[in-house]
Simulated scan of single mutants.
Amino acid sequence: MKNKPDDLISILEQKETFYPFMRSGKCRFGVPNTAELNEFMELIKAILFPGYFSRQTIEADTFGNYLKVNLLNMQTILTSIIHKGYCFDCENDEKSCAHTVTESAGMSERFIETLPLIKELLISDIEATFLGDPASKSHGEVILCYPVIQAMIHYRVAHQLYKSGVPIVPRMITEMAHSLTGIDIHPGAEIGKNFTIDHGTGVVIGETCVIGNNVKLYQGVTLGAKSFPLDDNGNPIKGIARHPIVGNNVIIYANATILGRIRIGENAVIGGNTWVTRDVPANEKVLL
């Protein structure tokens, strides 16, 4: 080894080599971790789709207790995750963590109240996927095998947390799905009911994208940003609407790229491998 251990430590401990890429440890609760997030998502799936993702045998006479136990376990884990998310955010701003465990528990309870809505939307996504693919044999096959459903479970959950203002956690949840499926959906995107993606790999849906009802995408579709206005220092201005608005009943075929805050009108069809940077009227077909 060319450098002695003490020499390496001397180099590595220099503040300019790690700041802000090292956690300072100000908050004893740490940061959200993937083990907790994985456990949380497994409980979500077990609650929303009993028998598909749970290890227990589901019996009619014990189903209520099954749901109660899983809901309580899920709430406990989510409360911890939300609290760590807020502590992470406060530490970024060099503030003391202002959100207590009690406040995080309240947010966790409010999230649980959205589970019926999440389930309703996911069932519509499953139905759209099943009806839209002649190769699918059953709804159960769609739930277990189709990457879009894994991605949408993560997205629908993350989106509710995102709307509640929970820091970092929603993005971590959707990035878990990105790693699993190759489908990249930002939790800030607005997606209507009966949404599906055929195959799925390589799809990108940006933070400020708005998608209506009954929309179908194919693999490789990008709903992205075209360019970024810059501030006085030459850095991109964050938080502005910069992604497409897609109307109801739109189909976008494989590897289409749609960029900027443009509108794709209802019932439009965007052909494969197209490059779209202008508004598309309702009922129009865009082909190469």
Rank of each mutant, 00 (worst) to 15 (best):
R278T: 14
P50A: 12
K238H: 05
V203I: 07
I168C: 10
T79P: 01
E94Y: 12
I262R: 04
L288M: 15
I81N: 04
L287F: 14
K226R: 08
T277N: 08
G188N: 04
F111S: 06
D198V: 00
F18D: 08
Y19T: 07
I264L: 03
Y86S: 04
Q219T: 06
N65Q: 07
T79F: 00
K226F: 04
H99V: 15
I9Q: 08
H159R: 09
T57Q: 06
K137L: 14
P32Q: 08
A60S: 12
F88H: 09
F21K: 13
I112C: 05
D232E: 13
N235P: 02
I191Q: 01
Y253H: 01
Y155R: 07
N38T: 15
E94A: 15
W275T: 10
A225H: 03
K238P: 02
M176G: 14
V169W: 01
L71F: 10
E13M: 12
Y146W: 06
S227E: 09
G260R: 01
I237F: 09
D6F: 13
Q14R: 15
G220E: 03
I143M: 10
Q75E: 06
L287A: 13
G192L: 04
P20L: 09
L217W: 00
L117S: 12
I258A: 00
A158S: 14
A158W: 04
I126R: 02
P244Y: 02
N249K: 00
T257Y: 03
P116E: 10
D279T: 09
V210F: 04
P229W: 13
E120D: 15
E266T: 03
A241C: 09
C90D: 11
T62N: 12
A158C: 12
D61E: 15
L131Y: 00
I205S: 06
G165W: 11
A189T: 04
G132V: 00
M22R: 15
L48C: 10
A128R: 00
I262E: 03
L72W: 06
R110A: 11
G265D: 01
L72N: 11
L180V: 09
I251W: 03
G30V: 04
I211R: 00
Q160L: 06
D231Y: 11
L144T: 13
I9E: 10
T17E: 09
T274P: 07
I143R: 07
P116T: 12
E42H: 07
F18S: 11
I211A: 01
E175T: 11
S10A: 14
K137H: 14
T222R: 02
M74P: 02
I197Q: 00
E59A: 08
P32W: 04
K193Y: 13
D279P: 08
D7F: 10
G272S: 13
Y66A: 07
A254W: 05
G271T: 12
E113G: 05
H154P: 12
Y86P: 06
E120F: 15
K119M: 11
P281N: 04
R171A: 05
E284G: 00
K26G: 08
T100C: 14
T100M: 13
Q160C: 14
A241Y: 12
H178P: 13
V250R: 00
P187S: 11
G265P: 01
